[in-house]
Design a protein around this nucleic acid. Structure first.
Lengths: 149, 149
DNA sequence: TGAAATCCGGGTGATATAGTAGGAATTCAG
DNA sequence: CTGAATTCCTACTATATCACCCGGATTTCA
């Protein structure tokens, strides 16, 4: 039940873009260095996010990527689902195109899977990139304060 | 973020054992036929569940498996975690032995992962095998009723 | 005594993951 | 106007995991 690196790196990259929202395009080089990720691999993830209209790109020197909407309008769920597809724990409870098993009707395991799926969706849809930025500033503020003691 | 078949088949098998709890050992052949699973593969899963003291086995003819505790004392979480390990969506938030990344302290992505992990655990720890049996009987009763209309 | 089971270790083909490689196209700065 | 920076695009690949299967040893009941 691990998230693949697609989802995780995607969140990290989108968080970076949220941190610098409104300050022009940010290059993949910057993101990759800040988050310690492979630049080439990030490229592929950004292509997916761009096609899903979650980021905009600017080509050429001094180019880069920026969020396609304000950080409080993009949720972690938008990002993860774009990169990983449905977070349903089993094929029979994928939201739009479930793969029905033979006993789909009266299957108690399916009920379990639905409850897991729903709880994951509820969490990731409730967290925006803005929330992450605020968490980050709060965490950093706290550790800065610690140095004064 | 799919559950592997280990977790899913494990739940299905444990549900079967719960359904016949108190009626003596159930053979893998029966379980495999009822749930449409590979008998040989189930064998490996049951070995893991047996070592974790979730099931007891009886060898020889008329042997099989039975729950090691009443269905209301075994949760879906017990089964899934035994077969799949932690359900943490990233290594940095595995409960007992997290793999700390460099920025572990002030990482906003880690907070997201923790919230996903906790919501999954909350759901699976709240569902017992007994709950599944009751769901199953309710669902079956309903469809039997439907035929009368 | 033989059939029905569990137990056990190893093997295996297919698929997904997490990248790397190499270059084309675009755009800004000087 | 040239070169550096950067996105864009396609293809390739090593590794690991999954989801089993195989073959046989052992145990136990009828």
């Amino acid at each position: 039940m691990k998230l693949s690196t697609k989802g995780r790196y995607g969140i990290q990259a989108m968080f970076e873009l949220a941190l610098y929202y409104g300050e022009g395009p940010i290059s993949l080089k910057t993101i990759a260095e800040n988050e310690g990720l492979s630049e080439h691999y990030l490229e592929q993830l950004m292509a997916i996010l761009r096609k899903a209209d979650l980021v905009k790109s600017v080509r050429g020197a001094q180019g880069g990527y920026m969020l396609a909407a304000p950080p409080d309008k993009i949720t972690v769920g938008d990002v993860i689902r774009t990169l990983e597809g449905s977070l349903a724990p089993a094929d029979c409870v994928v939201e739009d195109t479930p793969f029905e098993c033979s006993r789909a009707g009266g299957c108690p395991t399916k009920l379990v899977m639905e409850r897991i799926r729903d709880s994951i969706n509820k969490v990731i849809d409730s967290i925006t990139l803005q929330d992450m930025v605020e968490d980050y500033r709060r965490l950093n503020q706290k550790s800065a304060f610690m140095y004064y003691i």
